[in-house]
Design a protein around this nucleic acid. Structure first.
Lengths: 144, 144
DNA sequence: ATTTATGCAAACGCTTTGCAGTCAT
DNA sequence: ATGACTGCAAAGCGTTTGCATAAAT
């Protein structure tokens, strides 16, 4: 079965289904900007004026735990979240700070190579790349 | 010229050469455990009883800035530091928490692939792998 | 003699926690 | 009815900052 709703997944893990949790998931899934807790909070405030930052954090911890979201550590001072669960690399623009997914990347060969070099039994990875995004490259030519 | 000492490098960037800075660099270079600030502080305390955590942080910021060390964000609650400046991946053991270098890894092909997929002009990367180290794999067989 | 660094303690910023009231089941 | 969740405020914790003293140039 693959067509489980967020509500089903929450329930099947013994968590209750609340409007806040559904809203957080909805917000996260409908953005590509890899928001941190505060960005999520601000996105939700208009429709949930009573929303609290603590609830966002608690919700994201659950989502991480039950596989509804992953946590990114891109070297900023706060965590970012991503609802795309296929493991994939991320690129961060050093100029504007945006973070993009790299979805088509094939990393089996890398995992094998690293497993061999390290003798670890690997279970996961986080690949972060840094540089300048297309938009900021353009700006540089015009204004710098 | 390639045989610059830490003292030379500090001076050439306008920083003063102090016993604390030399000691921090020495400690960092003579360990493979990728210490965080507190670990460094504790390593130095015996020989520098007056050492302060703030000095470790300030020193590491300078080292990062002038290329004497790099900062790692492995998904823990604190930063770790590495004096090996060639860019290389890291593996963290989920069981014992140790962090190892992967030195022989060739990542040019990956950088090219990611640059092509993302349209970013890449300047850096951080590759983190997670799993179980050889030692902990052994333990598991014996005790679990 | 100047200028920068150290070390302490206080401040910071993100995240977590405690708890009374509220909601999902 | 019960147990879990929310939201507020307070606490936590790694890191940074301010400042007086000390050390490097």
């Amino acid at each position: 079965m693959d067509m489980q709703s967020v509500a089903d997944i929450l329930r099947s893990h013994g968590f209750k289904v609340t409007p806040q949790r559904l809203a957080v998931y909805d917000a996260l899934q409908n953005t590509t900007e890899h928001p941190n807790a505060e960005m999520l909070y601000n996105m939700l405030l208009p429709s949930y004026p009573a929303m609290s930052l603590a609830t966002v954090y608690k919700t994201m911890e659950i989502f991480d735990q039950i596989g509804l979201a992953q946590v990114l550590n891109i070297g900023e001072d706060s965590y970012r979240y991503d609802a795309r669960m296929e493991n994939h690399p991320h690129v961060r623009c050093n100029t504007c700070g945006r973070v993009d997914d790299i979805m088509e990347f094939e990393d089996e060969a890398i995992m094998e190579q690293v497993a061999k070099l390290s003798d670890y039994k690997l279970t996961g990875r986080q690949l972060y790349f840094y540089g300048e995004c297309p938009k900021c490259q353009g700006k540089k030519k015009k204004y710098n």
